[in-house]
Amino acid sequence: MKEKGKGGFGKNVYRRPESLVDVKTHFCPGCHHGIAHKILAETIDRFCLREKTVGVACVGCSVFLYDYIDVDVAEAPHGRAPAVATGVKRAQPDRFVFTYQGDGDLAAIGTSEVIHAANRGENITVIFVNNTTYGMTGGQMAPTTMLGQKTSTSPYGRDFRKDGYPIKMAELLATLEGTAYSARVATSTPAQIRKAKEAVRKAFDMQIKEMGFSIVEFLSTCPTNWGMKPIDAQKRVLGEMSEYFPLGVYKERKQADFL
């Protein structure tokens, strides 16, 4: 069975991407971080960037990026990954530089850093994983938490009169002149995964072509902190989350047409 494929099937059509380290992840069952990691690693492989990439990990479940993606990684303080990435990219413009950030990191404490990195047209790529909660610290309310969503710090549900509204980062960043590419994707169906891969490829391509700042927002799940089975968590993404956070490409620069 082992030799020449499996059970007579010679062509391996899916295996672990080369840039994805062969270890068990710390992610909870059904967490979509794993899917985002796979897509990231596949895209690094596709562009043959493994040996010229510097990643920047942020604070949250996403921090262990350096255990899973087989590239050089710097760890940033909470929310500061786009600023650290700026420092790396300015020093090494010929390296591929990305950040991988959660929604608490990017959309709350790090809003200033990501907005200004985008506005400078910083030639970096941001992978932004939005699961509407602070996963690692135990499911507190995030700026992306849906109205009415119960979390450990919004036990009666998020109320817009008190906490405002879930923030739409892909749309917000698309308004900035320096942003070359901004898209929101999900990974809850095979078709969505295909589109997510395409978006990450585009975002990478923007950096390679020096077009400016690129960001892909992933609508992700947090079954543990949502108190849902993984399949129900996926249904939530397909339902209320995608309704409020519409999937799509919000900005795509065609050429380096800086004003």
Binding site: K6, F9, N12, T25, C31, I35, P190, I193
Partner: peptide
Amino acid sequence: GCAICAETCPDVCIEVWR
């Protein structure tokens, strides 16, 4: 051998041959 299972698996547990 459509590989949809493998694409979906967050833990990269599945290899596919066709």
